[in-house]
Design a protein around this nucleic acid. Structure first.
Lengths: 248, 248
DNA sequence: CAATATTTTGCAAAAACTTGCAAATATTTT
DNA sequence: AAAATATTTGCAAGTTTTTGCAAAATATTG
């Protein structure tokens, strides 16, 4: 195993585990305790992790790089949704991904050989695409809202006005057959309306817990949405009444 | 097997595997270890891969491991620099932080009780400020350059034109008394010149290894810089000849 | 405090790299 | 086509880097 390979593996595990024993690393990588120790020293020198007594922990830079790496639960609702959503991606598309959690995971799961342009107002999402060589990223700038980890404001809107993407993947807090798609934050609801206007087609990906949920600020009625992707079957009883939208 | 054939096979294999042992290549291509090594050297010279001890990796494999970053060592040069730099921060200032490593660590070390506005084109830096409640963050949007993890492009410049911050902390690759401040990337050097124009005062923070280093693209001569912060004493012999700049 | 675990240091062996050279192969010239 | 020339390949010897180990020193735990 190449040293670089080992170090990559260390970082990959640390992105998920946040903290690892040197002994466990030694077993995992099938090299001596000492070799692992040397690797770890080197990685610490590079600012990629922090060495502690008997082990290593993630540092802030790696935390930022790893994003929300608790990840998508195997076989869970979200994984089903993301798998369905990935099917809409085609080579050479231009897509808008806003700052929702689902979109972050979708971005991560973009096949490495897929050529895309991603427009986003989410720094973590942009960074999730660091290793996607074939994905061009356009970052929308504005005032950074730490709570949501997205940029918003008039500058974002101005940039969007000049775009007309193929697809917009809209993140929401809730979707209801009569109250439509909604959110808890006013400015963000306005921004998403603008994102809809800046794309030919709007897709909303939600897990079933969000169905029937209504929050304070409506983004749009169901009929304005082109495609609804959920973990449910399209003919599920819970999706009855969602008219004027393609269900997947 | 022709050399060209072999080299093509190496690249194809690397595309899939990302990393290969030289020994495995030797077996696979049924040529001596030495011939493989020569092939690999040639391919590296062409920039098509990266040679590492005992093997090769694809160029993108080392994105995170490539030694551009340095950790902040306790008592090390960088820590001294950052401590000095922090002294320039005052309540209610508006500062520009570009995407250098030093600025990332500086951002992290901003006291939690300090009220600031930070303008930045660096998503990781914006995210490093997630827990700083008193720091407002303005993210400059544009095309996201994954290699440098910054946004650049005309949109960034347009946004900057409308700003006039108190301070600009400029990240560089090298500083030399006659050749000034320089960088390895052309677009970035232009952007930093624009950032200088968008701030009342420009501060450059560097560790001593960067002193005397000259890279391809000059940002500005020393005299245009307001303040130089290094880990050295201001009257150090290594700082002789740096005229027209405040040394800290 | 003693026992245990971890870290540091120094070292030898193994692996990888570098260099120079001769033989083999490929290309060019006649 | 044969001869001359250039390039490539494989090898051996010497050098450097990496790895694993053991002993000593230090830190942690009960």
């Amino acid at each position: 195993m190449l040293k670089e390979e080992r170090q990559q593996l260390i970082l990959e595990h640390l992105k998920t585990a946040k903290k690892i024993n040197l002994g466990d690393l030694s077993n995992m990588l099938t090299v001596s305790y000492d070799s692992v120790r040397r690797d770890v020293i080197e990685l610490e020198d590079k600012g990629l992790l922090k060495k502690v007594h008997g082990g290593v922990v993630s540092n802030s830079y790696l935390n930022i790089l790893s994003g929300q790496r608790k990840g998508v639960k195997k076989g869970g609702d979200l994984e089903i949704v993301i798998k369905k959503a990935l099917k809409f991606l085609k080579n050479n598309q231009i897509i808008i991904l806003d700052g929702g959690t689902t979109n972050f995971f979708l971005a991560e799961q973009i096949p490495k050989n897929l050529t895309l342009t991603v427009i986003t107002n989410s720094p973590p999402l942009a960074m999730a695409l660091n290793d996607h060589e074939n994905v061009e990223v356009i970052l929308l700038g504005g005032r950074y809202y730490k709570r949501y980890q997205i940029a918003m404001g008039p500058e974002v809107s101005n940039q969007l006005k000049r775009f007309y993407a193929d697809l917009y993947f809209m993140g929401i807090n809730g979707i209801d057959k009569t109250k439509g798609l909604s959110l808890r934050n006013y400015e963000e609801s306005i921004l998403k309306q603008q994102m809809m206007s800046s794309a030919k087609s709007t897709i909303c990906c939600v897990v079933e817990e969000k169905i029937g949920v209504v929050e304070a600020y409506q983004i749009c009625p169901i009929s304005k949405l082109n495609t609804l992707v959920t973990n449910l079957e399209p003919d599920s009883i819970d999706l009855l009444g969602f008219e004027g939208v393609e269900k997947v």
